[in-house]
Design a protein around this nucleic acid. Structure first.
Lengths: 344, 344
DNA sequence: CGCCATAGGGTATACGTATACGCATAATAT
DNA sequence: ATATTATGCGTATACGTATACCCTATGGCG
């Protein structure tokens, strides 16, 4: 242990010991084929022995490639700032793993979207590309995204996938998921299905889920009632408020499709408080399958997104974009998880 | 928008426009006092206009400071590899925020602790220091930590704080928290209190919590029964198994203190399946206050750690260590959250 | 009125790597 | 046997910044 004279070895040290020039060391270690197998093996052995590591900064400076991706969470400024949407957190695991697998580092930030966050990561050569995650008011960020595109910044976004979107988007099949949820509710005999979640341009994902619901209802010969839709952002409080509004609206309903589990959990509280029995009086479906969803009473039927696939696909897509390769797949299937809240 | 000839401006460009030399630009922007106020203001204005950003790689290469911290999660290899302990995830928010506040970037990794993870981050100049987070088998990592110390790597660890520990540790007051839990259980009339969690050198934090529990019991004149302790790692399955073992052990018990919420949730399942009523027959307390804890039936009494403070303190301590300043505070208070699972 | 300290900033260079070229030697073609 | 190409590597240099050192003008001081 600690044999080295404490100074970290450079490629020159390796070169000297191997009896070659410094560039040859560089070539050997990064797999250039213009170096003989014997020379390469020798260099690798020596590097190993000296615990040599390529200096990341020097390498990045010279090659203009950082082999680092930046992950940016953006959410509406939250009163409880320490709360992060659990859904995105669960994506973090697969993203870090995929980055590691591809030999990329991951830089992470929850900074509010201040004026120059894109400059921070791109122009200062901190990362080769950016992964954007976030619910929140979509419209607010559109101009920023356009700016990113203009600057030639490479990025991917998690969200509602559409061909005409800005930049590159990867996401779940929200419409299909909404259809599954709607079909399931119809199947268990519900006809008056409410939707809790913004159904506007501000939240395309939620809108897609609503569209899917409507499609499934119509396919079953049921006409959705617009009066049963209430706006809500993804939080318990918002779900609670939306459900209260629904109850006070006086319209009858026998099912609720919440655009997220947090909304659903808030709604369940409001419904229970109003004396409604779940699922007998009102069946309820959430979205995301957060851990808490299997702990609620009744346990919550929800839609599980493919988080592992999501991380992989996001990283894949971004790396493809960075290398100017075409991106192949962008939509991930989602799966309905049946639990007690819709049990007949 | 997009006014510049697309090439990113360098400090030479700024220097030329400001009529000064490149080093002066560097000095001005990093606040050296050997630059006049007027010159500095002018340089800053021009830099702003050109959207100039200091190149991170060049800067780090020259100064040998990256202004980046690395966050390393280590956990026992998990069958469900996409699952990350929710407790640590909630710390992530405060760590990223504190890093941002201090002008540091955060590099993140969930890589298994392979042979050379320390080399990866330290010797390749990716980060100035490392934050280590993880439950898992403590002993397994000791030699690695010793190695880190030998190499002069700067790091902090979240865990059980003790003066003789290896490296620098920041953590909650686990003993105090255990005492609070124990005192509460005694207060609601329980005497036969079981503990679920490793009580060995392998998990010092869990042991501290157990010690606190025992201390509180003895303070109330109750002698803890070693037969009521069961090993468990932080997962639902492990908690379930531990509770099963406890039930099958045949010893009577009227309360369970679980070393983590995940253990508690698994245990609740086992207890309920065994026909025991919560909290009438068995009161139960968890640890961590994960979101799911407020959704269980009954809702789970637990210990909330100061996650926001934790992130701040970890980053503070690490930066102090990096700058060779003394570290001031290292222990954070924890707070008991009373819910239905211990309601009299 | 000369001396020295100080402010303000220029000159030269180092940080450690990757790449454009050039130049041998050996292998193949003609 | 000469021209041609590929192989394997060395030489020179660029990436963009930060810092050690040097120089010039001032102003205070005796």
């Amino acid at each position: 242990m600690g044999r080295q004279p404490s100074a970290k070895p450079t490629s020159f040290d390796i070169a000297y010991l191997a009896g070659v020039s410094q560039p040859t060391v560089s070539r050997a270690l990064r797999g250039s084929k213009s170096v003989s197998a014997a020379t390469r093996a020798n260099i690798q052995r020596i590097a190993q022995e000296l615990n040599y590591t390529v200096d990341k900064n020097a390498s990045s400076l010279r090659s203009q490639r950082t082999h680092t991706l930046a992950l940016l969470f953006f959410e509406d400024p939250n009163p409880d700032e320490s709360m992060i949407n659990p859904f995105f957190l669960s994506m973090l695991g697969s993203i870090t793993r995929e980055c590691a697998r591809r030999g990329y580092d991951l830089l992470i930030s929850f900074q509010q979207m201040h004026n120059d966050w894109h400059v921070t990561y791109q122009d200062s050569h901190r990362s080769d590309g950016i992964i954007l995650l976030g619910y929140g008011d979509y419209q607010l960020y559109l101009t920023k995204l356009e700016h990113l595109v203009e600057m030639g910044t490479k990025f991917v976004r998690w969200g509602s996938v559409s061909e005409d979107g800005i930049g590159l988007t990867v996401g779940s099949d929200n419409v299909g998921a909404g259809e599954q949820a709607g079909a399931h509710l119809v199947e268990v005999g519900r006809r008056r299905i409410a939707f809790l979640g913004d159904a506007s341009d501000h939240a395309p994902e939620f809108q897609d889920r609503y569209d899917g619901l409507c499609r499934a209802m119509r396919a079953a010969g049921v006409e959705p009632d617009p009066a049963l839709q209430r706006d809500a952002v993804s939080s318990e409080d918002s779900g609670y408020a939306a459900a209260r509004s629904l109850i006070e609206g006086g319209q009858s309903f026998d099912a609720v499709f919440a655009a997220s589990d947090l909304i659903a959990i808030g709604a369940m509280r409001a419904l229970t408080e109003a004396g409604l029995r779940l699922p007998q009086d009102v069946a309820i479906i959430g979205f995301d399958d957060i851990p808490a969803a299997s702990q609620t009473t009744p346990t919550l039927t929800t839609v599980m997104q493919d988080m592992k696939g999501a991380g992989t696909l996001l990283v894949d897509a971004l790396l493809a974009r960075i290398d100017d390769r075409p991106v192949e797949e962008r939509i991930l299937p989602a799966r309905l998880i049946r639990r007690q809240s819709t049990a007949v």
